[in-house]
Amino acid sequence: MTLSRRQFFKVCAAGAGTTSLALLGFSPDQALAEVRAFKLARATETRNTCPYCSVGCGVLIYTLGDGSKNVRSEVIHVEGDPDHPVNRGTLCPKGAGLKDFIQSEGRLLYPEYRAPNSREWQRISWDEAFTRIAQLMKEDRDANFIATNEAGQTVNRWLTTGMLAASASSNETGYLTHKFARSLGMLAFDNQARV
């Protein structure tokens, strides 16, 4: 019986114990693949999309951790989704490094604040951040909101604070962000498509 790594993985996932399968002689052709299957067999597979270019390759993210409350799941592997009609399991050199993006040492871990003229960041709480940002926005909006223009036309715009939206955030985030920005009267509002 010849099994690809993926088929082997499916068989294992279907319930039969991997050890007994191997004893019965059901094993993938290559030992290397076998080791990987064992490792991934204990992992949770989640379907996702590469967040880099717009080919939108399907990826499979493998995590360890059983979902219990105090267990943090850990990403152990990312690979191309073989079922995806565009990339059919492949990833390019960018996508192949996705695990290093998720686990980059450049990831930000907590809200930070830099005071005027300071050389340093200081850690703050989310509530402090939201409170101070909302205060600054409101002060600026209340002071500079333009209800009517010189011609007396209703314009209801706020030009002194602007926003740039992301290029890789989800539609759900983008939709909410748009709703938020326009309700404030923002016009200085763009996304990465402009550049």
């Binding site: 880099y52 717009s54 939206a165 290029s167 989800s170 983008g174 763009d190 996304n191 990465q192 498509a193």
Partner: peptide, 15 residues
């Protein structure tokens, strides 16, 4: 060029 520039533009996130 980016994974959701299309979507953000579709959703009208431009001035």
């Amino acid at each position: 060029g980016h994974s959701n520039i299309q979507g953000l533009t579709d959703l009208g996130l431009l001035s």
